[in-house]
Design a protein around this nucleic acid. Sequence first.
DNA 1: GTTGCATTTAACCGATCGCCTAAATCGATT
DNA 2: AATCGATTTAGGCGATCGGTTAAATGCAAC
Lengths: 205, 205
Amino acid sequence: MSSPNRSSADTKDQILDAADEFFGTLGFAATSTRLIAERSGVNKALIHYHFGSKQQLFTNVLDRYYARLEETVRTHLGQGDNARERLLHLIDSYVDFLAENHLFSRMIQREILGGQHVERITQIMLPMFQLGRAVVQSTYPETKTGPLEASQLLVSIYGMVVASFSYAPVLEGLWGEDPLAPPALERRKAHLRAMAELVMQRLEH
Amino acid sequence: MSSPNRSSADTKDQILDAADEFFGTLGFAATSTRLIAERSGVNKALIHYHFGSKQQLFTNVLDRYYARLEETVRTHLGQGDNARERLLHLIDSYVDFLAENHLFSRMIQREILGGQHVERITQIMLPMFQLGRAVVQSTYPETKTGPLEASQLLVSIYGMVVASFSYAPVLEGLWGEDPLAPPALERRKAHLRAMAELVMQRLEH
DNA sequence: GTTGCATTTAACCGATCGCCTAAATCGATT
DNA sequence: AATCGATTTAGGCGATCGGTTAAATGCAAC
């Protein structure tokens, strides 16, 4: 009664997978429920039966990612001996997460730009942002004010990290190689680590 | 004969202005030609009469921005005594440009993410990217290889610059103030300048 | 085997989409 | 005033959209 039978869960997962693919590559507005149904090999009406509406299907796709992200952050948050190592490790693991879920960053970016789900995204990012700012400020008091204040740093670091993923389709044309392939990812991680270390060195004088 | 009469040019501009607004805020797929016609106070069929299709209207909106951007870059490119000052000035003027045309950055971002106009955007950004890489590499030979190579730096700087604009709707919720208002913009510019100087100091040893 | 419930299906709904057509209107030229 | 091409208009085209309906099917309990 309370536990769903297996075929139902399978169907929902297949729908979520197809929705993930198309929402991530085409965007919400450009993706039709018929396209999702066709790709997942499922009747179109099942989407509304299982998820209610296209909007609710989208939030279900997002929620699945939030769950993965939360788990990733939780397992990687405390790793590292000092604050510096913890921050570097956090950036590294976030890059890995985006690499494994690169459609997620594109989806998030688009929705931030789009306006429809801004409140929800803000609501999710606000505590993470405040936590990050508090950690940075307590570790480096200089970031409480001035040109390197924590809020600005967080936006910059986030922008740097996300850039190579959300711009992947264009970067492939600019770089002449797949930015999401392992060698390019390793070079990107090395660069981001160097940039973070540069900032930290400056903050440590 | 070759010169269009004034009313035609006015109509086209009104259509372009309305298209700009909705493409910038809602995105291409979520904007209907009827909405554009309604806002610009123009008959729906005129859009296709003057621009052929919704797609071509969109590229016309983009081209108008490219013209402004090209003019801005051209007037600001040579300013500054040395390479260091020129790069700092270029970042500053690009931030100003995005501030004055913040719908443009959102449109570009979305299309980079979207996939439909990726080839066109790549085609436009490729020469700028190659030029930027050549300038950075010749100014700082260390950027020819290693973790601070020019390609990575350009992506990072671009990501930092664009972040505060494309994330503006969310940042407003995070910061508690409008990220596009003059005081926030000045603080952002000061931060970006500090970050750029940090990198340059490192490259100059 | 029959009941009862969750799941799946085909067919369809009104609304809206981008786009087109034919006729009306405008405006400069003669 | 008449002409003619450029511009604008109302109306409608087929296609596709998200969503709904009622009937068919699968499946476990009795």
